[in-house]
Amino acid sequence: MSKEHEQGMSLIVKTITRLTVGLILLYGIYIVSHGHVSPGGGFAGGVIIALSFVHLMLAYGKEVALSKLPKQASSFFESMGAIMFLAIALLGFTGGYFFLNFLSKGEPFKLFSAGVIPLYNIAISLKVGAGLFAIFVALVLLKFESEKK
């Protein structure tokens, strides 16, 4: 029992997780990529993406989730998201001012429209998804350290 417990939850949970986790991740990506035409966007999508990894960690234990997305990688992606956001905003200076929407706006309610807004959404989703997962991992790992003592 205890050995099984270390590796995660029961078989039922693991099976369901295996079937759903990909869908959750995909749904997060959908929310991010359609952020400029429907409700949602970078933040909501990022949270869903982070939750898919949290789900994995809850069901299979921390080793499996951390092998998919190591701690260093999540903190790297988090900073990368912020840098990307700033870089896109700073690129606006080429046309005159900060946060300039320098790409063509396209036709409303199409996937490829709204200029740089989808790019901002992707940057935000990276930042939020990686950041939220990093917070979760930090709290979980901290707890295990103190239990070891």
Partner: peptide, 12 residues
Amino acid sequence: ALLIALAMRIYD
């Protein structure tokens, strides 16, 4: 998140 992390450290 920060408050919870602090609380865990304090308990430690």
